[in-house]
Amino acid sequence: MTKSLPSVTIVRRIKAPPAKVYAALTEPRLMMRWWGPDAGPTLSAEADVRPGGRFSIVFRLLNGEEHNPTGVYQEVVPEKKLVFTWEWPGMPERESLVTFLLEPFDGGTELTLIHEHLPDEAARKSHEKGWKGFLDKLSVFLGDPEWST
């Protein structure tokens, strides 16, 4: 299922129809109300939701730090799919890719989020199954006191 590099995948069932979830993902007015990793405020949200359009979000964490993730929409399928690149100034990475998938589910929506790190095209092409198993082993490995440095 995972098609490339290490990725974060989150699946969440939401009691609201895809149209509503999609609106929350794409309308700045609504994006302002959820975007951010803690209860700190979202300060601004801009989204030009079409392939090649940009988004830019500024949020402040409770600890006072402000962050400004930006990116470019790659794929836009209303109420179904949203794919955008992800750049986070000042964070130790170049660019990654975020995919939101929305599926109707029992009157609500099953939302799948995939955040992948994409170093380059070559790496993306050499996608292989087995990442998950590898990462599981890696987690065990990194937690293994024998190798702690």
Partner: peptide, 11 residues
């Protein structure tokens, strides 16, 4: 956390 908040908002 963000998706928790998103879910809360739309629900």
């Amino acid at each position: 956390v963000s998706i928790d908040r998103l879910a809360a908002l739309v629900e």
